[in-house]
Amino acid sequence: MSNSRPNARGCCCHSSRKDSAALPDYPTFHGVLDTIGATPLIRLDRIYDRPETDVWAKLEGVNPGGSAKDRTAAALFADATENGRLIDVDSIIESTSGNLGIALARQALLAGLKFHCVADPNINQPTKKTMQALGATIHVVNEPDPTTGDWLTARKAMVDRLLKEIPRSATFDQYANRAAFSAHSDGTMREIVDALGVPPDFLLVAMSTTGTIGGCRQYLRRIDAPTRVIGVDAEGSVLFGGKRGPRTLPGFGAGTEPELASHAQPHEVVRISEIDSIVGARKLARSEGILPGASGGAVISALDQFLPTIPPGSTVAVVLHDLGHAYLDTVYDDEWVQDTIGVTPAELAELVSRQIGRYS
């Protein structure tokens, strides 16, 4: 008789002990890619003084690559493999601000492929070093697009050049590839609904390629849920009618509206400034002990704006795309904030303290 028992992720737990039935059911996996998904949903009960409203956070930073983009990379690879687009391919080339690059670097490594990441100067250095540690080659564009002033346009142009220069290469084009929707429809959103037992009344999701919010909306439409989906965008982003402007925090917002956006319209969009994103991130860290990335900070600040209008008794879910370890030199660095955003350490401390309120 086998001592293997299925666990929540569908793998088996193995033990050499004859009395394994009495042991705790700790999961084992065939490889690191099997740990993608099934991320925890955590109730935020310290950050908001409103016990009649349940606020839950989907903690995507516990994926093996540290972000929701692990799901996206797995879906992109699975779709390309199933449709034969990786036959005779040796190299993957993709434009990314960082998180997808980490995920694709690992996927490519384990598939025996080379990965070329096209980034811009706003990439976090820890993220860049993580990709290099996984064997990726980093190509950094030096100037934004001369016509639009947009870094993403410049990155996509470099991808096109590299595809011509590097033999047997291919790109997934994360900005147009609808496989990204399945990662978050069948994964992120389904997991939230399964964990809660019902769809949340409100869902807040930061946006960039719009793959996450599009996938979440896809699942909610499939089950005919009344959930109101709020897209969180960066000031200076052009998504859904936004006005182009300078942006220094990677991970959310876009300088060019991606093709996926036409299938991912949220019910409402709120645009968050960089300083509010920073304050939101620090607020969550100081109150709940959760260190989010820049987009997570933006989601928390967006929720601060919406919470007073949300009816008592509502259930709210937010997606925290990544954790803040790659942002220690930016979002969580007082000197960087002063030099880049123009807010002094004293002013920043006051803003955070004011937001934390009774939990300071």
Rank of each mutant, 00 (worst) to 15 (best):
Ser2Pro: 15
Ser2Gln: 13
Arg5Lys: 14
Pro6His: 00
Gly10Asn: 10
Cys13Ser: 15
His14Tyr: 15
Lys18Glu: 15
Leu23Phe: 12
Leu33Ser: 12
Thr35Arg: 14
Thr39Arg: 06
Thr39Asn: 14
Leu41Met: 08
Ile42Gln: 03
Arg43Cys: 12
Leu44Thr: 00
Leu44Lys: 07
Asp45Gln: 11
Tyr48Arg: 02
Tyr48Asn: 04
Asp49Cys: 05
Glu52Arg: 09
Thr53Trp: 00
Thr53Ala: 08
Lys58Ala: 02
Lys58Gly: 04
Lys58Met: 05
Gly66Phe: 09
Ser67Leu: 08
Ala68Phe: 11
Asp70Met: 04
Arg71Val: 03
Thr72Trp: 01
Phe77His: 02
Phe77Glu: 06
Asp79Arg: 03
Asp79Leu: 00
Asn83Trp: 00
Ser91His: 08
Ile93Leu: 12
Thr96Leu: 04
Ala103Gln: 12
Ala103Asp: 05
Leu104Ile: 15
Ala108Asn: 02
Gly112Glu: 02
Phe115Pro: 06
His116Met: 13
Val118Pro: 01
Val118Ala: 05
Ala119Asn: 04
Pro121Ala: 08
Asn122Trp: 00
Ile123Glu: 01
Asn124Thr: 11
Thr127Gln: 09
Lys129Trp: 13
Gln132Lys: 14
Leu134Gly: 06
Ala136Gln: 09
Glu143Thr: 05
Glu143Leu: 05
Asp145Thr: 03
Thr148Pro: 11
Gly149Val: 04
Lys156Pro: 01
Ala157Glu: 03
Ala157His: 09
Asp160Tyr: 00
Leu163Lys: 06
Lys164Ala: 14
Glu165Lys: 02
Glu165Leu: 06
Pro167Cys: 11
Arg168Phe: 11
Ser169Ala: 15
Ala170Phe: 15
Thr171Phe: 10
Thr171Pro: 02
Phe172Val: 13
Phe172Cys: 10
Ala180Asp: 10
Ala180Thr: 15
Phe181His: 11
Ser182Glu: 13
His184Leu: 02
Asp186Lys: 13
Asp186Leu: 14
Glu191Met: 08
Ala195Pro: 11
Val198Gly: 04
Phe202Gln: 04
Ser208Ile: 08
Gly215Glu: 00
Cys216Asn: 02
Gln218Val: 03
Tyr219Gln: 01
Leu220Trp: 01
Arg221Gln: 07
Thr227Asp: 01
Ile230Asn: 09
Val238Arg: 03
Leu239Arg: 01
Gly242Trp: 04
Gly245Asn: 07
Phe252Met: 12
Thr256Met: 15
Ala261Glu: 10
His263Gly: 04
Ala264Lys: 02
Gln265Glu: 15
His267Asp: 15
Val269Leu: 06
Val269His: 02
Ile275Cys: 05
Ser277Asn: 06
Val279Gly: 05
Arg282Cys: 13
Ala285Gly: 09
Leu291Gln: 05
Gly297Asn: 06
Phe306Lys: 12
Phe306Gly: 01
Pro308Trp: 11
Pro308Lys: 06
Ile310Ser: 13
Pro311Phe: 00
Pro312Ser: 12
Ser314Thr: 03
Ser314Glu: 03
Val316Phe: 07
Val319Met: 02
Asp322Tyr: 13
Leu323Met: 06
Gly324Arg: 00
His325Phe: 14
Asp334Glu: 15
Trp336Met: 07
Asp339Phe: 02
Ile341Tyr: 14
Ala346Tyr: 03
Ala349Pro: 07
Leu351Pro: 03
Ser353Glu: 15
Arg354Asn: 10
Arg354Met: 13
Arg354Thr: 13
Ile356Tyr: 01
Arg358Thr: 12
